[in-house]
Amino acid sequence: EITKEQQALMKVIADAYNRHQIPQDVAKKLLQDQYSAEENFLLLTEMATSQVQVLVEFTKNIPGFLSLNHEDQIALLKGSAVEAMFLRSAQVFSKKMPNGHNEVLEDRIRRSGISEEFMTPMFNFYKSIGVLHMVQEEQALLTAITILTPDRPYVKDQQAVERLQEPMLDLLRKLCVLQHPQKPQYFACLLGRLTELRTLNYYHAEMLTSWRMN
C-alpha cells in the first residue's frame, strides 16, 4: 500500500522529471541533416551540457536535496551526472519515436567517433532498459535514487544522503509491486540496472578520451 505521503512524494518527483526535459530545439538538431564530424562533436557536447542543466533543475526539486551541504550537493551531481544521462538516453531509445528516428539517432551516435568497445555495452544497456517498459514514475524515481547514491566520491555526510534515498527506494519497491504484480523480481531488476550504470560510468572517462582522439 502506498501512503498519502508517498503519493505526494511520487507526484513531486514525477512532475519535476517531466517538467525538466532537454529543450526541443536542442533535441531536434539531432534529427536534422548530415553534419561533419566536428559539428557532430559540438552537437553532442551541446546535448550533454543541456542534459546536465536539466538534471540539476530536476535534482533541485527532490525533497531535501537543497538542505544538504552545498559541496555534497555538487559531489552527488558530479558523481551521478553520467549515470543519469545514460538513464535518460536509454529512455529516449525505449520510446516509440516516429519511423526511422531511432535509426537516425543510433547512426549519429555510432558515427560520433566513440570506440566500438564502449558503444556495444551502451546500446546493450539501452536495450536492457527498454525491455523493462518502466512507467514514468519509475523512471523518475530511479533517476532520483541514482542521484542520491551516498557513496559517491567526496560526499561528506553520507547518512544525510541515505536518509533522502531510503524513502525513494521504499516507494519504488512498492510501486514495482503494484505496477508489475506478475513480475516479483522487477524491483531487483531495476536495482541491477543501477549496477550496470555504475560500470558504464566507470568506463565513461576512457570513452570520452577515445571520442576526443578519434
Partner: peptide, 21 residues
Amino acid sequence: PASNLGLEDIIRKALMGNLEE
C-alpha cells in the same frame, strides 16, 4: 559558451541558477 565549461562548472552554475551570466 556552456559547452566550453567542465562538468563541475556547469553543475555549480546551474545550482546557483546563473548559467546565462
